[in-house]
Design a protein around this nucleic acid. Structure first.
Length: 106
DNA sequence: ATATTGACGGGCA
DNA sequence: GTGCCCGCCAATA
């Protein structure tokens, strides 16, 4: 039998690591994949923790499609570069075209 | 130990 | 159509 509850973080990381390069996913979408659309907050928190370097948190954006400015000291600057490095165009606002780069889940 | 916050999202009034 | 409130988990004060 399983523990009372497996770390929800692990569920999140598992999905985030599943994001293909050149694509981005929203917290809500990831949260839904976990099984609870309201876990969006936990998803964001898991990213802020980001203990696993295998988790491309820079590919995870909010529902507006903009990157997390709390990524680091440089803000979304480095994150923006990473996305552009993966063929993902990012605006100066740190916003990407969801309709173009949104991860379809496959 | 408890309370509040925190990279959000969705539902309801 | 707009605005406000609630929910979830973990970490920090």
């Amino acid at each position: 039998m399983k523990n009372k509850k497996d770390n929800i973080f692990e569920e999140i990381y598992k999905i985030v690591k599943k994001i293909p390069c050149g694509k981005v996913a929203t917290y809500g979408q990831i949260a839904i994949m976990i099984g609870n659309p309201r876990l969006s907050r936990v998803v964001g928190y898991a990213m802020s923790s980001c203990p696993y370097k295998d988790v491309p948190c820079h590919r995870v954006v909010n529902r507006f499609g903009e990157l997390a400015k709390t990524f680091g000291e440089n803000g979304s600057e480095e994150q923006k570069i990473r996305l552009e490095n993966e063929e993902v165009y990012v605006e100066e606002s740190g916003c990407v075209d969801l309709k173009e780069y949104i991860w379809n889940g496959k």
